[in-house]
Simulated assay, not measured.
Amino acid sequence: MQLKPISQQVVAVVGASSGIGRDTAVKFAQRGAKVVVAARSELGLKSLVEEIQGFGGDAIYVVADVSDFQQVKAIADKAVAKYGRLDTWVHAAATGILAPFEKITPEEFERVVDVTLMGQVYGAMAALPYLKQEGRGALIHISSMEGRRSLPLQSPYSTAKHGLEGFLEALRVELEHEKWPISVTSILPSVINTPFYNKVRTKLGVKPTGIPPYYDPSLVADAILYVAEHPTRDFIVGDVGRVLDALQRVSPSLVDSVLAAIGFVGQRTNEPKSEDAPDNVFEPINGYDRVEGDFKNLIIPSFSDWWDMNPTLKWGAIGLAALGIAAFLGGWHDGKDV
Rank of each mutant, 00 (worst) to 15 (best):
K199A: 13
A321I: 07
V113Q: 13
L313W: 15
V220W: 01
A170S: 15
I236Q: 09
I211Y: 02
D337F: 14
I318E: 07
L323C: 08
R40W: 04
P189C: 11
V220Q: 00
D87Y: 02
A74H: 10
Q133F: 05
P311Y: 10
T95E: 10
V206P: 03
A317L: 04
E176T: 15
I300M: 12
G316C: 07
S41F: 01
V11P: 00
Q53Y: 08
S218A: 09
D294E: 07
E108P: 06
L329M: 08
A327W: 04
K103F: 09
Q30L: 09
Q120I: 08
E174Q: 12
I60F: 04
N193D: 00
V90Q: 01
G238N: 02
L175Q: 03
M309L: 09
I299K: 06
T194D: 06
S150G: 15
L98H: 11
Q53L: 11
I20W: 15
L168V: 06
L225W: 06
D114F: 10
M125T: 12
A64W: 05
Q133Y: 05
G96A: 12
V10R: 02
V173N: 09
T88Q: 03
S67T: 11
S253M: 15
V26Y: 06
H162T: 00
R242A: 08
A16E: 00
E178V: 09
L151A: 12
D256Y: 15
V49Y: 04
V10E: 01
F264L: 11
R233T: 11
P252C: 14
I6R: 02
P189S: 04
F101G: 06
K203R: 11
K207L: 04
V184P: 00
S67P: 04
S251M: 01
V35N: 01
A33R: 03
V35R: 00
V250E: 01
A94Q: 03
A228F: 06
V14F: 00
V255Q: 00
R290G: 05
G166T: 15
V173E: 10
Q267L: 09
P106G: 15
L131A: 01
S143N: 11
E108K: 14
A33N: 05
S41H: 03
I325S: 07
A170G: 15
W315Y: 07
D234M: 10
I52K: 08
I182N: 02
Q267K: 12
P213D: 12
L323R: 08
L48E: 12
L151I: 08
V121K: 03
G293I: 00
Y288E: 06
D294N: 08
G319T: 07
V173H: 10
V191E: 12
A81R: 10
P181A: 06
K103D: 13
D222E: 10
K179D: 13
V90H: 01
P129C: 01
P301N: 13
L225D: 01
V90W: 00
A138W: 02
F295N: 06
P106L: 15
Q53P: 08
K207C: 02
K273F: 15
T105M: 05
I52M: 05
W89Q: 07
L254M: 12
I325L: 08
Y214H: 03
G135K: 04
H230Y: 09
L168Q: 05
S150F: 10
P252A: 14
R233K: 09
H91T: 14
N310Y: 14
